[in-house]
Design a protein around this nucleic acid. Structure first.
Lengths: 355, 355
DNA sequence: AACCTCCCGGGCAACGCTTTCCGACAGCCT
DNA sequence: AGGCTGTCGGAAAGCGTTGCCCGGGAGGTT
């Protein structure tokens, strides 16, 4: 049975047209934008009828008629992580500006899940698909992801990636390596020599880039990081906490700890504090991202400021502007922010150590 | 001209049916669930054809055919605020479980904008609309919001509110008042007598409830809060920072500051620290929410633990279960968590003051 | 006055799907 | 053998829009 015209269903354009005594086409032209002009008398009648019925156009129907839905699909690893929620805020801002609605999906940092989500999202025919930074190295699913994304594009959608370049799509890339290197150099300048790294997960490209940058900067400063002082762990608060614990267990001589991001740094600080280590008195620490919510930790964290919100905005802008042709890559740099957690080392200061 | 069958368009069910040599109806039954059985031979042919064409059903089309789109629309004040992003995480979890996609909109804490968003969202015909806590008192737009929500429900949608009861819809309410009162009582028990409140914005219901609870708990403990020691400010980090500044300016004798939420508490701590006030040595402080990201601040914050993620999950569950009839209200309590920021006051300890 | 343009409503065919209804056929009972 | 029931594929009528095409009337030109 065709869905009965039961009272529990929204008024449609047909209802409005009938109420206004005009044709469907005219009602559509008045209510849902069109090039065509409609005489004022008609226009008014339609508007009045629409208001009287409390008409609200059905976007799904517009989407099927138009071929694409007016939405941006955003995929993040974890909306609870301020890194992602800040980027998401930028996506919202840009999307609102372009009159697009935003759907969010959470991949839980699992590439297979991300792939499944993209397959799933394709069904919504969003105008834009924004994937935020969870590219992995040697990712077996990367090929399938690329295939899926390409299918999406070939159907008229647009893809924008945030955080890693490398895939053949529009990308807003973070200069992780460069910024990390600059931070490390700066710390060397401040007098630090004995470094340890809390490196983030080995497979995660962002984490690798940052570590590589740290190591390069340290080396450029003439210092060296023993292999045992590089500890991997999840990109989370608990990951930082655990990695810090492992570092303590190894009883190395360390002046300063470079975490792969602020969230890990904060976790590590919690662990060091538990161990009774004075920061920055006994141990310095730095992070990456300059997460807003974490700006008030003590000691305040030396870090790399990244315009996260702008990353999200730019991704949407890029996808909207897309003309076709070669994918565009926008590279965004970070700004070193030195705070209390890494004071200058006194000229001939006494040795610092975690042990 | 009917949109040409240009190559840049996704394969449709018709394509699959043709490829498989079956009817549209059969293809639909196989691919997009239906009660009706399809003989295995046919079923297989359809599946093979779908795979070969890389078919992906158009959800917009399903939505218009079915009358409602498979989505949850979530409205939050600020996705960057961990309070909201944690609730959002719960909504995602529940939605994923029910195979619904989630759209998010950000109201920027502005009731008019929230109203506009709800009007806008109605067009999407989501199955569920979840509004997270920004009810205001005497809100002039509240009536219009109610009207709009009722229209949405009368069209077959479901509404769930998180955080404040009072509107005639399914609600997951937080026992702000009760928990705040319990926290205040606890602090009295710990020996605190001279309280100050950083109260959040006057218009915001959540803020009012918490303040009222604090005051009640303090009074019940036999203490009293002078009017000058209740300072309002935005529910944000900067709001807390500013309110703390104002408190200092008033030069009151205060032992402990109760902030309306953790985010404000952290802002306030930053301000107090700048003023050189030792915490908890000279001043104790407590918050509300037990935000995960803020668990590592020093001193660790006494607060009320609220199952934020579960709030979001329950809201979706409520809306899904909805049978009609009276709106259901679930009340969720908080758990007092005493940490370093409010140590017991020594029996005859010396006086503490902010000035 | 005849003709040509515009202008602007209306009709109607898409868009991609779901669901009802119909009818062909097979199996079973009497 | 005849009739009945049950199963399952196909045709077609929706769902709520948009956008092409048509045609009637007003106004301008020669």
């Amino acid at each position: 049975m065709p869905r009965a015209k039961d009272p529990a269903s929204a008024p449609t354009l047909v209802d409005v047209a009938r109420e206004a005594g005009v044709s469907l086409a005219t009602a559509s032209r008045v209510l849902n934008g069109s090039e065509r002009r409609v005489a004022d008398a008609y226009r008014r009648r339609v508007l009045v009828a629409a208001a009287r019925l409390n008409y609200s156009p059905n976007l799904s129907a517009q989407a099927v008629a138009g071929g694409r839905s007016a939405s941006v699909a955003l995929v993040v690893s974890d909306i609870t992580d301020p890194y992602f929620s800040t980027i998401a805020a930028g996506v919202f801002r840009a999307a609102e500006h372009a009159n697009l609605i935003v759907t969010i999906s959470v991949s839980e940092r699992r590439p297979e899940k991300e792939l499944r989500i993209v397959e799933e999202l394709r069904r919504h025919r969003p105008r834009i698909l924004v994937l935020v930074g969870s590219r992995h190295v040697g990712e077996e699913s990367a090929t399938r992801l690329s295939t899926e994304l390409r299918a999406f594009e070939s159907e008229g959608g647009r893809v924008a990636l945030v955080s890693q370049e490398g895939l053949p799509f529009d990308t807003v890339a973070l200069e992780n390596r460069e910024a990390a290197e600059a931070l490390a150099r700066r710390l060397v300048t401040l007098g630090y020599r004995r470094f340890a790294l809390l490196a983030g997960p080995r497979e995660l490209l962002t984490a690798r880039d940052r570590s590589a940058g740290y190591l390069a900067g340290i080396a450029a400063g003439g210092a060296h990081v023993p292999e045992a002082a590089v500890i991997e762990g999840p990109f989370t608060r608990d990951g930082g906490y655990a990695a810090a614990g492992e570092l303590l267990r190894r009883e190395l001589e360390v002046d300063v700890v470079l975490a792969a991001n602020d969230v890990m740094a904060v976790g590590a600080m919690a662990r060091f504090r538990e161990a009774g280590i004075a920061m920055p008195g006994h141990l310095a620490i730095a992070g990456f991202d300059d997460i807003g919510t974490l700006r008030d930790v003590t000691p305040s964290l030396t870090t790399v400021r990244v315009p996260l919100e702008s990353l999200g905005e730019q991704a949407v802008a890029l996808a909207l502007a897309r003309a076709g042709g070669e994918p565009t890559v926008v590279r965004v740099g970070g700004e070193i922010v030195v705070r209390e957690s890494t004071p200058p080392v006194p000229r001939r200061g006494r040795s610092r150590a975690t042990s």
